[in-house]
Amino acid sequence: MAEPESTEHRTETDRIPADEPPSCSSLTTKELQQNWREVKKRERPVRLLFEIPSTRIIEHVLSKHVVYEVVVMRSGSFDSRRVSVERRYSDFLRFHHKLLEEFNEELEEVVFPRKLLSRNFCPELISERRLALQDYLAKLFATRCVRYSPHFPKFFTESEQKRAHSLLRAGQFQLAVKDLQTVLEVEEKLLPWQNPTLIVPTLSALAVCYRDLEQPEQAFAAAQRALPPTRRYGLKRYRASLLDLLVDLGYQLGRPVAQLQEELTVLRDAERGEVSSRSLKELVVHEFT
């Protein structure tokens, strides 16, 4: 009778690779439960969380108002990029009215914090409203039609986007970059629920600012990132202008640009008269006017 084969004589194919997880039969109940928790954590859907951690009172000569810091972050994993914007109660109110025009029935059970007729600057009432607005945003995000609506990202980005483009038109590119970076970070958090072209105008504006700030590497990177969604979703005017900028910057940086040049030539030859011949800067300047 042959003796059992020694484990020392097993071939490489018989051995379990070190990087493979152990089989279920070799795990204890505790280890199985831990593995299951890790799998569930990875599969947990990412959501947006909204926090209003602080407020401040802005006083003018004849008036004053409260602004709320709105922090946008993702759940599911540690989000180190907590981006925030500031909004007044009147901004929330306009946003709510726009949503009601389109989603009145869907928002029937979403309560908007009532307007205060007096004691608007009482610390206790400001704190109460702060929490109510935070809860309001969470309920909006939980409403599918609102979550996918273009009104949703506009509330968090439109003010900064308009201010950035005003600064850009005034030649204050460094200040414009600061607002555009905030807008881009918010848009990136919203992308799973929004059209991927959402970031194209922002990246295009950043490319223009960086170029005028004589930072060609950053300008090239922003334009390069904006190009794929313009190709995929047929944004003809942006595509030609981005390609033109990338070719120009590519020559300046010593990058290979032959394919980009060929793509631009083919695009303009195939759709002559339909493709914008304006520079990216000309396009960006006329945005958000």
Rank of each mutant, 00 (worst) to 15 (best):
R87F: 05
P113E: 06
V83G: 01
Q34T: 10
I58H: 03
E105M: 08
R81W: 09
S118R: 14
F95N: 05
V110A: 06
R114W: 10
E38W: 05
H97D: 09
E86R: 07
R74E: 09
E38N: 08
L62P: 08
Q33M: 11
Y68M: 01
R94T: 13
V111L: 09
H97M: 13
L49P: 01
K64F: 07
N35D: 12
V72W: 00
L49N: 12
S75N: 00
I57F: 00
L117E: 15
N104L: 12
E108Y: 08
M73R: 14
S75E: 11
S80Y: 14
R56D: 01
E86W: 06
R37I: 08
H96P: 03
K41L: 06
S84R: 02
N120I: 02
E109Y: 14
R94D: 11
R42D: 12
Q34D: 09
L49M: 13
S90M: 05
D79I: 00
K64L: 04
S77N: 10
S63I: 01
L48Y: 07
R87H: 06
F103M: 10
L99F: 04
E102C: 07
E109K: 13
I52R: 01
V83H: 08
E101C: 08
L107E: 01
R81M: 13
R47V: 07
T55Q: 11
S54P: 02
N104G: 09
E101K: 13
V46F: 04
R47G: 09
W36E: 11
V83D: 08
V72I: 09
K64W: 00
L99I: 03
S118D: 13
E124V: 11
R114I: 10
R81L: 15
F78E: 13
P123I: 00
L93K: 15
H65N: 05
I57G: 06
P45N: 00
F95K: 02
E86L: 09
S75H: 00
R81E: 15
C122P: 06
E43C: 15
V85Q: 03
T55S: 09
V39E: 14
P53V: 00
R114L: 09
E106K: 10
F121L: 05
L93E: 15
E59Q: 12
V66N: 01
E106R: 06
S84I: 03
R119N: 15
L116P: 08
V110P: 05
R88D: 03
T55R: 01
P45S: 02
T55I: 12
K98N: 14
P113Y: 08
L48M: 02
V70P: 02
S63T: 06
K64Y: 07
V46N: 05
S63Q: 03
C122I: 10
R81P: 09
L48A: 09
E109C: 07
V85E: 01
R74H: 07
R87D: 07
V83K: 02
R87Y: 03
I57K: 06
Y89R: 02
